[in-house]
């Protein structure tokens, strides 16, 4: 919006980066002040690994054979990324509802920095969470069999999914503007997570549900991670299953473009 020619472009860009770093630092300061929230946020996926891995695991059938916990963990990694949408939502909605976003907008701060600072902070947060989940996986007997490069590619795909979900979270927060509505998001995350290949193979679902699950963006990332980590349960006859890695790149990019554009539009629309 505020396309003024007050500063030449390189200087504006420099401030955009510097302001983004300041706002990322603000989020990091939050975690230092509230380390408990970070721990509690990870407690849930860890609990789910234990619950599904040991409680339901005995009854689970892995397509093509293999250990259920090895099948499950890539699904849980992707679920952890999905849960992250709640923290993005809560942070942005709280700032907007409290007037903090408006204060940022009234400062000579680069307007992009409010969103890029949030995105960078949440990505760092999720990378730390993912590291804990990987360690937790190793502790329950999960391992990667595909080499370091493939494993890093899988981690990259997980963070790419998280990056796309940051924009979904920002957009929803700017639309709803109510921190309390995070409860609704916490509920909606479940059907999205379960209608995928994260916990069970879509083969075991009714046909129509299997089709939905196969095309769920979460499924693409999970299948691609199973493939890259060398864990059981990937592949299949559907197009989606056969092009998991390509879809695990394409889906997040599409979500980022669509929701990134919507979020930026919403953010600028705050001034209308």
């Amino acid at each position: 919006m505020n396309a003024t020619s007050a500063h030449p472009v390189p200087r504006r860009l420099r401030w955009a980066v510097a302001d983004g770093v300041v706002l990322t630092g603000r989020a990091l300061a939050h975690w230092r002040r509230q380390p408990g929230q970070f721990v509690v946020g990870l407690l849930f996926p860890v609990l789910m690994v234990l619950m599904f891995g040991y409680l339901f695991g005995g009854a689970m059938r892995v397509p093509g054979g293999g250990d259920y916990r090895e099948f499950l963990l890539p699904g849980m990694f992707a679920m952890t990324m999905l849960f992250g949408v709640e923290s993005t939502y809560a942070a942005v909605a709280t700032d907007t509802a409290r007037g903090v976003t408006d204060r940022f907008r009234s400062l000579p701060t680069a307007s992009s920095a409010v969103l890029t600072g949030r995105a960078a902070a949440d990505l760092l947060h999720s990378a730390a969470g993912l590291a804990v989940m990987l360690a937790c996986g190793v502790a329950v007997g999960w391992q990667w069999r595909g080499g370091v490069a493939a494993a890093l590619a899988a981690v990259g795909l997980l963070l790419l999914l998280r990056f796309a979900l940051i924009w979904v979270g920002i957009h929803l927060a700017l639309v709803l503007r109510s921190p309390e509505s995070v409860v609704m998001l916490q509920i909606l995350v479940w059907p999205v997570g379960f209608t995928s290949n994260a916990f069970v193979s879509p083969d075991t679902m009714p046909d129509w549900l299997a089709a939905v699950a196969a095309w769920n963006p979460l499924s693409a990332t999970v299948a691609a991670c199973r493939q890259l980590f060398g864990n059981p349960g990937w592949g299949g006859e559907t197009f989606a299953a056969q092009h998991a890695v390509a879809l695990a790149v394409a889906w997040p990019l599409l979500l980022t473009v669509v929701f990134g554009a919507l979020a930026v539009r919403r953010y600028r629309g705050l001034g209308r």
């Binding site: 505020n2 003024t4 007050a6 500063h7 603000r26 300061a29 939050h30 002040r33 509230q34 409290r98 007037g99 903090v100 408006d102 204060r103 009234s106 400062l107 000579p108």
Partner: peptide, 23 residues
């Protein structure tokens, strides 16, 4: 025309306290 220049010359204290409650 020059909102960015205005922002460098004003202070705004809004209707609701706009602070980071955690910091």
């Amino acid at each position: 025309r020059h909102p960015a220049r205005v922002r460098a010359r004003i202070g705004l204290v809004g209707q609701h306290v706009a602070l980071d409650e955690v910091l």
